[in-house]
Nucleic acid binder design. Structure first.
Lengths: 227, 227
DNA sequence: TTCATAGGTGTAAATCTATACAGTATGATT
DNA sequence: AATCATACTGTATAGATTTACACCTATGAA
């Protein structure tokens, strides 16, 4: 096999990881999403290059028609050293992100609280990690303090979705409303104020979209009445 | 896992064969072609049945989105020590209970919608199944229509807990309040009325207590405003 | 009989996906 | 300077795929 460029090795590693995680190869768009491409074509040309060099085989006209030339490792063994962005463990685990260290990426090791054995494909699009939500600002969307928000990593956030956004070294969960080019972050709780994003002033980084919720303890009804 | 019909076993075997041969799962049409169906729908309903029985997992809206619950054998040649009776530990799965058939026990096969790979020990006490909640009656406890309530099977329900109760051939989720020997079922939504249980008249069967919530799709903010 | 379930046919719409065409930019090689 | 490969953005479209709806035929149980 011809030598692969570093970028091509990344693509190949992603494909392998994707298959072990989901059981099927990625589409061009999914590759692009995972690596931050804005066009599925970037993935397409990488795939062509990989096929040309013999690392993969492409079946024309077939969705997800990517075949690895060298088979995947049996299962638990080899995977551990690769620690890609998404939790790739033998038993389908998702990392739980607690308090996020300022300045470091969301999935930095020091932010990971623990791992939960939850199928990432339970959610759609699939979950990449679980974020421990703090505060009541999304209460009326059924997201309570202490809940785990299942998050799909993507920079593409559409109007009306619940987004995870890094804003001045904090990570916040809000509805996103984009209208006339203006982006607003809307809480789901009248006690909190909406906020308008100023692209000049605010260093806002989209981290992903919420795709589900897991609550691992339920509120008890107190004798007093509420909660 | 529930027992598969002979035909379902054929389908499952075909899927496994297809994956080992091509590296990706088959489409509905490809399954149909291989088995002589004239309609992709025959394959679709078989896949549903297999998912219901926990043999595969289906990713909605995804081409070739079929995942095997139990992994494929390591590789073509290598079965020296045999696929022993123990096999690899398949990921723990919880059944999802949808509409409950009147008269039949909660965990009857016809009530099982599908299986989700979720660690039962994520909740405490551990979850025995996931119940699809219908209606808004527990909204203010953060349990919304369509949510999956993680349920621990027990008949012992304590004051203030969220309980799953079978009441006149329906299954309901409510806060339970026991005071002076009187049991009351309290919704968490002012639009619904509390109810007092009369042990003489009401055939109320405690099925378990809620120990957690999983929401596999999030509400989108509609342009109108609410939800 | 009547009902429920397994197993199918057939059609059609919505949406996913592969992939062509047209560009931009940056390095190496020639 | 010209050429080529890598690494992308952006748009568009034909075709692949999922999936809903309507309906048919057995077979076994109530």
């Amino acid at each position: 096999m011809k030598t692969l460029t570093p970028r091509q090795q990344e693509i190949l590693a992603l494909i392998r990881r994707f298959i072990t995680e989901t059981g099927y190869p990625p589409t061009r768009s999914e590759i692009g999403e995972a690596l931050g491409f804005r066009s599925p074509n970037a993935a397409e040309s990488h795939l062509r290059a990989l096929a040309r060099k013999g690392a993969i085989h492409l079946t024309p006209g077939t969705s997800r028609g990517i075949r690895l030339t060298e088979p995947l490792p049996p299962s638990p063994g080899e995977i551990l050293h690769g620690r890609g962005p998404e939790g790739e463990s033998p038993q389908a685990q998702l990392p739980v992100i607690g308090r996020v260290a300022a300045g470091s990426p969301l999935l930095a090791e020091e932010s990971i609280e623990c791992h939960y054995a939850v199928d990432p494909a339970l959610f759609s699009p699939r979950a990449d990690y679980l974020l421990r939500v703090r505060g009541e600002s999304m209460r009326d969307a059924g997201i309570l303090d202490g809940d785990l928000l299942a998050v799909h990593r993507t920079r593409e956030i559409r109007d009306g979705q619940i987004a995870v956004i890094r804003l001045h070294d904090e990570v916040t969960v809000k509805y996103v409303e984009r209208r006339h080019g203006v982006v607003r972050l809307l809480p789901a709780n009248p006690d909190f104020a909406p906020m308008e994003l100023d692209p000049e002033r605010d260093a806002a980084e989209p981290e992903g979209i919420g795709v589900g919720v897991i609550r691992d303890r339920l509120p008890t009804l107190l004798p007093g009445g509420r909660r």
